[in-house]
């Protein structure tokens, strides 16, 4: 082992480099000299260990310099070759790409966030709470005492045994039938003014078929202040409908009944499928019902200790599945729970 052999190696490399005329040639040269296992430079570096101790240092630095030279020369030649590559080296860009995996938020999440975003922009606080509830928050405080016939409107799933609440509050005995319990919880803890929405899963003892499901997603809203009127409710929900459908929509309020609001109404929007003329989508009525709403019943204010003479308020509640059916043109609600990727991957990212 001597300095001369290092020079030899350098010459041999230059010759090989000059002879290389294609990227493949160049790769062969690189392997020949630098390969971790059989490369000639690698072998040279290893052999230095056997040289007399007094020569090792000098040889080592010569070998390192050579290695560096070779790497630089190869890289420079690589760059030149790439820049002047001919058609035969072209990559077939019509081959499938290596696409990064990406998932989508579930359509029910997307619609729910769409609703949340609209109300957040109107200054609403989004609150969430437990899915298993006690009778007080789900019914009693909402003007539905035990024997109230309105309880039949929401056939309830009950737990076999009470489950403790996280805050040592009342133990849960049922699966909430609406997120209204959160309105009660919020009012119990905060003084007016109130401007909240409460999204979440709710449960009813309904069959599972194309139009019903025992579990669905709801967004409920509540506004309480000193001068809240039915006109405010209308203005708010009209604004919501236009934002949600991203279009001028015609709305209609129909009087209805909910135990916790008075007056109560249902909001219909003109069917966009037929512009109100009547079609299969709207069951030939020209209207699609999208939510229930009303002015908060004074009994609800009394239940949470608000002064019902001083404060008024409105509340509304909508089913996300129903909105999603409309938005995506789906006609079977079960599709939202099957998690079929062929369906989910059609939803926008």
């Amino acid at each position: 082992m001597a300095a001369s052999s290092i020079e030899d190696l350098s010459r041999q490399f230059r010759a090989a480099l000059d002879a290389a005329s294609s990227p493949a040639d160049l790769k062969a040269v690189r392997d020949d000299f630098l390969s971790r296992k059989q490369g000639r430079v690698t072998a040279l570096v290893k052999s230095i260990a056997t040289a007399p101790p007094e020569e090792r240092r000098a040889l080592g630095s010569l070998a390192n310099a050579l290695k560096q030279d070779i790497e630089e020369a190869l890289d420079a030649r690589d760059a030149v070759m790439l820049a002047t590559a001919g058609p035969k080296d072209a990559v077939d860009v019509s081959l499938p790409a290596r696409r990064p995996w990406v998932g989508r938020r579930h359509p029910l999440t997307q619609v729910r966030e769409r609703v949340e975003d609209i109300f957040m922009a109107m200054g609403y606080q989004v609150i969430v709470g437990p899915e298993i509830e006690d009778d007080w928050h789900n019914f009693e405080a909402l003007n539905m005492p035990a024997s109230h016939p309105a309880r039949d409107m929401q056939d309830t799933l009950y737990l076999s045994a009470p489950v403790p609440a996280p805050d040592n509050g009342r133990a849960a005995t049922l699966l909430r039938t609406h997120t209204s319990g959160m309105q009660i919880r919020y009012m119990e803890a905060h003084d007016p003014p109130v401007r909240i929405i409460a999204p979440g899963r709710v449960y009813r003892r309904d069959n599972f078929d194309a139009t019903h499901t025992p579990m669905f997603t709801q967004v409920e809203g509540l506004v309480v202040d000193e001068h809240i009127s039915l006109g405010d409710l209308k203005g708010t929900l009209n604004a919501f409908a236009e934002e949600f459908f991203d279009a001028k929509v015609t709305t209609r309020f129909r009087p209805s009944f909910f135990p916790y609001t008075e007056p109560s109404a249902e909001l219909d929007v003109e069917c966009q499928g037929c512009s109100g003329r009547g079609c299969g989508l709207c069951k030939h009525t020209g209207w699609i019902e999208i939510l229930g709403c009303g002015m908060v019943h004074p009994a609800v204010f009394e239940a949470v200790g608000y002064d019902a003479n001083r404060y008024t308020g409105f509340a509304f509640g909508m089913g996300i599945e129903r909105l999603a059916l409309r938005l995506y043109g789906v006609d079977d609600i079960r599709m939202f729970y099957e998690n079929d990727l062929r369906f989910l991957e059609q939803i926008a990212l």
Binding site: P100, W101, V102, G103, R104, R105, H106, L108, T109, E131, L157, L175, R201, Y203, P214, M215, F336, Y337, N339, L341, L344, E345, L349
Partner: peptide
């Protein structure tokens, strides 16, 4: 975060 990491969100029944 999880969608960006390539996982699809599912919604399954609570019961």
């Amino acid at each position: 975060l999880l969608c960006g990491a390539g996982l699809q969100e599912a919604v399954t029944f609570t019961f």
